[in-house]
């Protein structure tokens, strides 16, 4: 499964509890309230464990978590892959 689909599945099932509309790659996760301040803690735990990455202080920026595409790009960049990986 692609990185972006893995993250989509996690946000849909674990953060939204399966109670949200299908999330597109460019939906604004923070602005639309899909991810709140607690949600990002849950998401960071998932990303670091699932993809074996460590997201550092200067990467903990809202824009890196604004959309599924942005999160996926960050994770793939950290794993030395392109966003399609």
């Amino acid at each position: 499964m692609r990185t972006i689909d893995n993250i989509r599945q996690f946000i849909t099932s674990e953060i939204c509890g399966g109670h949200c509309e299908p999330i597109t790659d460019t939906d604004l996760l923070i602005d639309q309230g899909i991810i709140d301040s607690m949600g990002i803690i849950v998401l960071l735990g998932f990303l670091e464990e699932k993809f074996a990455v460590r997201i550092e202080g200067d990467e903990l920026l809202p824009e890196n978590f604004a959309t599924l595409a942005a999160i996926s790009t960050l994770v793939d960049k950290k794993n030395g892959m392109n966003a399609e990986g």
Binding site: S37, G57, L60, L61, P62
Partner: peptide, 13 residues
């Protein structure tokens, strides 16, 4: 401290 808009994330950390 940090970037503008980063406050909530700094708080969480």
């Amino acid at each position: 401290l940090g970037r503008e808009g980063q406050g909530a994330i700094i708080f969480n950390e």
